[in-house]
């Protein structure tokens, strides 16, 4: 089976604006779950105000990698790492770099919509509140701005006090995005954010990602290659814990330099 790759007009990004700064520089990153060597010698440079897609078959380490970027990976089991990840020039594995500080700068959206069993308002206000913002007026302002930013304000503005589980799955996921936006992060990590959504909700989230790119740097893990092709500027192809290829999305999908990348995007495995 072959996949038809819809060619998009060449993106104007990196080539035209070479002065763009790097948000994340990953240098010789290795990661082990116990004895399982999950990430091997990763080198990646992620630029600001771009959408970077990470693709690859199940178990290739793409999810592990994105969770390493905000050190969520450490919550699961005993994890060992070597190498470094520089976020805005500072190594996130540094002893004195608090994970909470890092995660305040880097928002995350998860595979399954996971709103808290609270009202829509309280969900979005959660981040600012835990970080000490108590002023009701400021919170109102932040909630509205975030919900608008997540393109869901019009749908929920009259039901802010309803439980977040009373709305549809697609809306829940956009609430989760609004929740991440509420602390005005620098980077948004998205771990297969549309894998639990129907096609229409998926489309809305994709449009939203395009919109958010103006203000945020976005890293998105997806197993849907068309999605990567549609929304990303750069794409990294992971296989067995290694980065096989990292390039402009157009290059990856039209003219991959590695045979394995070509096999994967043409649907020969995965």
């Amino acid at each position: 089976m072959t996949t038809i790759v819809t060619k998009k007009p060449a993106k104007e990004t990196a080539s035209i604006q070479p002065q763009k700064k790097a948000v994340y520089e990953t240098k010789q990153l290795n990661l082990w779950y116990g004895n399982n060597h999950a990430l091997k010698n990763i080198d990646l440079e992620i630029m600001e105000n771009e959408v970077t897609a990470i693709i690859g078959p199940s178990g290739c380490g793409k999810s592990t990698y994105i969770k390493t970027l905000n050190r969520m990976v450490e919550l699961v089991t005993s994890v060992k790492t070597s190498g470094e990840i520089l976020y805005r020039g500072r190594n996130i594995f540094d002893q004195d770099y608090g994970v909470e500080e890092l995660r305040t700068r880097v928002g995350m959206v998860f595979q399954k919509p996971n709103p808290f069993p609270k009202s829509i308002y309280d969900n979005v206000a959660y981040g600012p509140r835990i970080h000490g913002i108590k002023n009701k007026k400021i919170l109102d302002e932040i909630v509205e701005k975030s919900l608008r930013g997540a393109a869901i304000w019009d749908e929920v503005k009259d039901r802010l006090n309803e439980n977040a589980y009373s709305i549809s799955g697609g809306q829940q996921q956009r609430i989760c995005i609004a929740r991440a936006l509420a602390i005005e992060p620098d980077v948004i990590l998205m771990d297969e954010p549309t894998s639990a959504l129907d096609p229409i909700s998926t489309l809305k989230v994709e449009e939203l990602v395009q919109e958010l790119k103006k203000d945020y740097s976005i890293i998105i893990v997806t197993h849907n290659m068309q999605q990567a092709a549609r929304i990303s500027d750069k794409t990294a192809f992971f296989l067995n814990g290694e980065v096989v290829e990292f390039d402009h999305t157009d290059t990856i999908f039209s003219n991959p330099s590695d045979k394995r990348t070509e096999d994967y995007i043409s649907g020969r495995f995965g």
Partner: peptide, 8 residues
């Protein structure tokens, strides 16, 4: 928001 957070 980030400035307010940093402060608190």
């Amino acid at each position: 928001v980030q400035e307010m957070i940093a402060k608190s």
